[in-house]
Design a protein around this nucleic acid. Structure first.
Lengths: 327, 327
DNA sequence: AAATTTATGATATACGATTGACATATATTA
DNA sequence: TAATATATGTCAATCGTATATCATAAATTT
């Protein structure tokens, strides 16, 4: 039932428990001979120090909590996977929290992460107004949304991205340019994409055509509504604030016999590796995933190593337009 | 720096530490008044029992380790997300381990999970020959691969799935039926899909056309090779042992001007919600994701609650063919 | 040979919560 | 009223590890 413990190693190596602890934590005087003896015993017994006991002593847990909507979405799956990989290289383990856009769940998760004494949190969920974030008292870095005063946000320049996509559609001849986006939440980055869209529309004296899709819509429901919109409204271009919606648009457009890009131009947003590999035809705005991950982890490490380090409130990385065949 | 602890709650509530512990763990005699007082104090202080200290006492950590190749792949992302959600409902937290098809990493993860005293592990990684699994001494359930003697495997009937897809292609008129699959590893489930394919091919006296793609191939490399194969070899049907490969095939076929399904029929394998939502046109073999998840967790819970419970070695769920427009 | 550095052990305390043993006091029931 | 059930407190030990303090002994330097 129970595992090997430090005293077992001590016995096996023929030294005192103190010495084993000295070897593990590398302090005090130690002869090479003893070090080797202890290591040998640890290996032979396949000894793993009990993380619980260690962190009770104030040692770091080396645990990082990740709060994201859901890894079943390729965008979050990809970023979570990259974060996890990089953290592992740095000796950290990842506790995964799929918040599922559920406030209650997110709140529960937050409490759980505190109870598990994680060393830090990276939060990329989309629920707003979680006051609890203010009182966590733990290093947190946020991805792409405002959480609370003093919690740095890593995001891309959504406004610029929105402009970029819309301008592209205009340049390619689009004059009835619609935007398909999420629900209108002022703090969310998709809202900035909308603002970018609106600014370009205004510059060119076009009529804005804004379509909101609630987050809780299933892809099927969304697709149905998209089909309606496409067949009902005169639209020659669509800027979707995420790639998956763009894919739905393309699918439905094809069903309706619309030629892409001749009759309908479509530009997405995100540009995950997944989309680039499996939908290479899609024109999209590329978010710098690797830079996100590097920066998120970099900032988090800084906060972990020094809780009082001064960090900016907002880190905005630039996006890039990728020309495919859908625009 | 330090968080609220049990004694702080006791002080606040004006009771003894023992009483607080009694409330938390619900044992001994307690008056409703005291229970309420303590709960109130816990809430006001936002108290979270230190998980480390609890599990040092032999309490369960309520942690489950998940070892999967990578959540950036929609199939694994989806199953991990479902598992995580269901575990959370049962009061468990998930430690995510993206093994990245890397033996070293998988081994490290296994040690880490042991050190973190997880209550159990669900492993769906694809590396083979990890002897360490034998000595874990922890409840483990495997998804879709053999790990070690006594570790139950939950999988779908890959052989039947391979037969199903191949037979469909034949029924639709395919006579040059190829299979695109991973590297030949006898223990892997894709190999059973291959065997199913071969059995049908044999029954109809056709020539097998087997193409192996190494796991470590990037999608780009794979796509390039697929294009070569399609333009070089006389093939009228392809059975891909996963949906993403099928998507590559479709993309490349379109590039080559091949009509689908007239000139080339394609059937995939997996049938994730993602593919059903965003590639509804794809014919595929549907794996019962929800049943996988239910069974995996069910079996794991049984093992956690009773380490000696008798479980079958293999649980095979049946698959279903989904007719799309690509076959 | 004396002083110092290096190497190890023994012992005790701490981390935060759990739990058993025992004491005591009130409330309820026989 | 006596017996029992209920409610709470005190105290100490425990989980596995870390670490400070003191002691001791061998190795090295002066």
């Amino acid at each position: 039932m129970m595992g090997i413990k430090l005293t077992d190693v001590a016995k096996k190596a023929g030294v005192s428990a103190t010495t084993v602890s000295r070897v593990i934590n590398n302090y005090g005087y130690l002869s090479q001979k003893t070090i080797d003896k202890v290591h040998k015993a640890m290996e032979e017994l396949n000894y793993q120090p009990n993380s619980m006991a260690r962190s009770l002593q104030g040692k770091n847990t080396q645990l990082i909590g990740l709060i994201f909507p859901t890894v079943s979405h390729p965008f979050y799956g990809e970023i979570v996977s990259k974060i996890e990989t990089k953290l592992f290289e740095k000796g950290y383990k990842t506790i995964l929290c799929d918040s599922a856009n559920n406030k209650e769940k997110e709140r529960d998760y937050l409490r759980m992460l505190i109870a598990n004494k994680v060393d830090g949190i990276i939060a990329g969920a989309h629920n707003l107004d979680i006051i609890e974030y203010k009182n966590v008292g733990l290093p947190i870095i946020s991805f792409d949304r405002y959480l609370a005063e003093g919690i740095p946000i890593v995001s891309s320049d959504s406004y610029q991205g929105g402009r970029l996509a819309t301008e592209q559609l205009y340049q390619r001849g689009g004059r009835k340019i619609a935007i398909f986006t999420g629900t209108n939440e002022s703090a969310s980055p998709t809202n900035q994409r909308l603002n970018g869209y609106l600014s370009v529309i205004k510059e060119h004296h076009l009529d804005p055509m804004v379509y909101h899709f609630p987050l809780e819509y299933s892809p099927f429901l969304k697709a149905t509504e998209i089909r309606q919109i496409l067949s009902r409204d005169k639209i020659d271009s669509v800027f979707c604030t995420d790639d998956l919606t763009a894919i739905l648009v393309i699918n439905k457009a094809k069903e309706l016999g619309l030629e892409i890009p001749e009759q309908l131009k479509v530009i997405g947003y995100d540009g995950t590796e997944f989309v680039q590999n499996y939908f290479p035809q899609l024109s999209t705005v590329l978010q710098p995933m690797d830079q996100f991950v590097d920066l998120l982890i970099d900032l988090l490490m800084k906060r972990i190593n020094n809780a009082d380090v001064e960090l900016d409130n907002l880190y905005q990385l630039s996006v890039k337009f990728i020309q495919g065949q859908t625009s």
